[in-house]
């Protein structure tokens, strides 16, 4: 129980309607395909598949 209380949300994961996944806060991003690992603080990840900068959003969902 004590352990449970110590746990605080470390990041905010926001799924935008018809838009990307926005992650901000304390997180580690690993991209298994491109073999990268980073702690960017904030990212927008593509959820529609149209981006040309995978895994990141390039606003192609608006087109």
């Amino acid at each position: 129980m004590e352990e449970e209380e110590k746990i605080k949300p470390q990041a905010v994961i926001e799924i935008l309607d018809d838009g990307p996944l926005v992650i901000s806060g304390n997180f580690i991003l690993k991209d298994l395909k491109r073999e990268t690992e980073s702690t960017p603080g904030e990212v927008k990840l593509c959820l529609c598949g149209k981006t040309s900068t995978r895994p990141f959003c390039d606003e192609s969902h608006n087109k």
């Binding site: 352990e3 110590k6 304390n26 690993k30």
Partner: peptide, 10 residues
């Protein structure tokens, strides 16, 4: 403890 970074894996 309790402040580990969130793991995001693509």
């Amino acid at each position: 403890r309790g402040e580990e970074p969130v793991s995001v894996k693509v």
